[in-house]
C-alpha cells in the first residue's frame, strides 16, 4: 500500500507544480493548496503507515499495548495544516488585493515591481 500512496503523493505534487506554473493568479492559489496537501501526505507516508491504530494510550495503561501509528509525523503535520491554512488565507487576500489594484490576474502583466520597460540606470555619479 505504501507504493500506491507514494504514487498518489506524486500526483498531488505534480498537479500542484503544474497549477503553480500557470500565469493565472487563481490557479496558482489552487496549486498552493494542492501542493500543501501533497507535502503533508508525503511526510505522513514517509513516517510509515499503520492502519487505524491511533497513537493514543488506552486508559489505565502506561504504554500502548500493540503497534501504534507513528505520532511524530502527525504532530508535525498537525501544525503544518493550520499554518498552511493561515498562509493560504494570506495569499488569497494578497492575490485579491493585487487583482483589485492592478486590475489583472495574469502574472506576466503584473509588472509594477519589475516593469518591462525599466529605464537604464543613469550613467553618472
Amino acid at each position: 500500500m505504501d507504493l500506491v500512496l507514494a504514487v498518489v503523493v506524486g500526483l498531488f505534487i505534480a498537479l500542484g507544480v503544474y497549477l503553480l506554473l500557470s500565469r493565472a493568479l487563481i490557479r496558482m492559489l489552487m496549486g498552493m493548496l494542492v501542493l500543501g496537501n501533497g507535502v503533508n501526505l508525503l511526510i505522513f507516508t514517509a513516517g510509515r503507515l499503520t492502519r487505524e491504530v491511533a497513537p493514543i494510550v488506552p486508559p489505565g495503561l502506561e504504554q500502548a499495548p500493540g503497534a501504534i501509528a507513528n505520532p511524530l509525523p502527525q504532530a508535525l503535520i498537525l501544525t503544518a495544516i493550520v499554518i498552511g491554512f493561515a498562509m493560504f488565507s494570506f495569499l488569497l487576500v494578497l492575490a485579491y488585493r493585487a487583482y483589485q489594484t492592478l486590475d489583472c490576474d495574469d502574472t506576466d502583466e503584473m509588472r509594477l515591481a519589475e516593469p518591462a520597460d525599466a529605464p537604464n540606470p543613469p550613467l553618472s555619479y
Binding site: 491511533a54 493514543i56 486508559p59 498537525l78 501544525t79 495544516i81 493550520v82
Partner: peptide
Amino acid sequence: HNEPGGGFIGGL
C-alpha cells in the same frame, strides 16, 4: 491531552 482533540482542532 488524553483523547483526539486539542487546541488546534478546538480553535478551528
